[in-house]
């Protein structure tokens, strides 16, 4: 139903989310660092799910750039927490544009619920 892109440096997370969401009937594209996303193809997606703490590209930056490019893009932010303490990471992500935030380790039902909520919005 919806075109979703999942960005996370951990392969397991990507696989799980892809499995789960595809079972829900969505089309899922996965990316390790979001590099494949650009101005042209971003508008193809309905929902962006991104991890925050990643070695290659910063998830926070991805959120900001997505917002800049496609302002009404729906974004869900995932975070596993930080080595030095999460601080206000998820809160910041929300203020910057993530509609929902999810903590790792996540509850699959929770993820599905949030995704469906956003997707069914219009």
């Amino acid at each position: 139903m919806a075109n979703i892109v999942v960005i996370d440096d951990e392969e397991d997370i990507r696989l799980i989310l892809k499995e789960v969401l595809e079972q829900e009937g969505h089309t899922v594209t996965t990316s390790e660092n979001g590099k494949e996303l650009n101005i042209n193809n971003l508008s193809n997606f309905d929902l962006v799910i991104t991890d925050i703490f990643m070695p290659d590209q910063d998830g926070m930056q991805i959120i900001m750039e997505v917002k800049k490019t496609v302002p009404d893009m729906k974004i869900i932010a995932i975070s596993g927490g930080a080595f030095f303490g999460a601080g206000n990471t998820l809160k910041t992500a929300q203020l910057l544009g993530a509609r929902f935030t999810i903590n790792k380790p996540f509850d699959i039902d929770d993820v599905v619920e949030k995704v469906n909520t956003l997707v069914n919005e219009n």
């Binding site: 925050i52 703490f53 070695p55 910063d58 930056q61 030095f84 601080g87 206000n88 990471t89 910057l96």
Partner: peptide
């Protein structure tokens, strides 16, 4: 290198929030 995201993310947070 491994701590990179720890370092960078809060920074982006600061910048993003300041923009807001």
């Amino acid at each position: 290198a491994n701590m990179s995201h720890e370092i960078r993310t809060p920074m982006n947070g600061v910048i993003g929030m300041t923009n807001l």
